[in-house]
């Protein structure tokens, strides 16, 4: 990252024009960026509109052109983040009957910052009745010596639809990964649907062993929640071995939801597996 970006960072953190609106963030490292970006989509009876589109810190939000009733927002990285000590959050809400697609323009690269303290990156997704949210960001890359705690908290109504993809790449080409801790929690109609916690990279014990990643450096999930899903089918296994990556697509216990879990050697192989899983989720 360039020296110029470094000089800009404290300014972004303390810019009085954009005070941090998060209520819980209080302990960011003085060098860290604190930013909460918000997207709120509503349905006006004809199309989905975006009454709130609040860029902040590294998240520059841009409305993309679309046809039909859905709205699409692109999250464009406005600075290098997350770095150690940063406190980042992204709040995305699709209110009742809204249809919202959110993507990111580039991979998110977690780098070591001015401190080895962890950065936090919290994504909060909220989907109303008969609303649909597709959150399909580009991969998160855990670069050497980075330290990131990521959470994804999802609240769904009983009739919500969701497509969520998460891809984690452990290290850029041929480097050791940083320390990446993630937790995803999904509630549907007030009930817990999925709770998973993963922790990769040193100093986590056993993370690269045959019970967890076995040398794979790309790991991802695809979650599809849709009240119309047919859940009576058998789990789908993609690739029988494990050497060149493999995935499983299977129904969750607590609701109309399918989860694909995949591991692969490379990000492209991972994407291929998750795309295949997506095809199976909606195709058959």
């Amino acid at each position: 990252m360039s020296a110029g970006t470094q000089l800009d960072r404290p300014k972004a953190a303390f810019d009085p024009a954009s005070p941090p609106t998060g209520t819980e963030e209080t302990c960011g490292h003085p060098d860290g960026v604190r930013a909460t970006a918000r997207i709120r989509a509503t349905y006006n009876g004809r199309v989905t509109t975006l009454p709130e589109l609040r860029s902040d810190g590294p998240f520059h939000l841009r409305r993309m052109r679309t046809g039909g009733r859905a709205a699409t927002v692109g999250v464009i990285g406005a600075m290098s983040a997350p770095l150690g000590g940063d406190r980042l959050a992204l709040d995305i809400t699709a209110e009742d009957r809204a249809e919202l697609d959110v993507t990111t323009a580039a991979a998110t690269l977690a780098l070591r910052g001015p401190t080895t303290a962890p950065a936090t990156y919290d994504v909060r997704l909220s989907v109303g009745e008969h609303a649909c949210l597709r959150w399909l960001p580009k991969p998160l890359i855990s670069a050497a010596d980075s330290n990131l705690h990521q959470t994804c908290t999802v609240n769904l109504a009983a009739t919500s639809q969701l497509v969520l993809r998460e891809e984690q790449i452990l290290g850029r080409a041929n480097e050791k990964p940083g320390h990446l801790v993630s937790r995803i929690r999904v509630h549907r109609a007030g009930r817990l649907l999925l709770d998973q916690h993963t922790a990769y990279g040193d100093p986590e014990p056993g993370w690269d062993g045959p019970a967890v990643l076995d040398g794979h450096r790309a790991v991802g999930q695809l979650l599809v929640v849709d009240p119309e899903l047919d859940l009576q089918r058998a789990p789908v296994l993609l690739r029988k071995g494990t050497k060149d990556g493999c995935a499983v697509l299977a129904p969750l216990a607590g609701g109309p939801a399918l989860l694909a879990t995949a591991v692969a050697r490379t990000s492209s192989a991972l994407r291929e597996l998750l795309n295949e899983a997506l095809g199976h989720a909606f195709g058959e």
């Binding site: 929690r185 998973q196 916690h197 922790a199 045959p210 967890v212 494990t242 493999c246 879990t261």
Partner: peptide, 22 residues
């Protein structure tokens, strides 16, 4: 609340668990 309970998971145990059952 129950959310404080650990939920540590492993992708390969999940995938190979389903493979093994088949």
């Amino acid at each position: 609340g129950l959310d404080v309970l650990p939920s540590a998971s492993s992708p390969l145990l999940d995938i190979t668990g389903e493979q093994h059952a088949a």
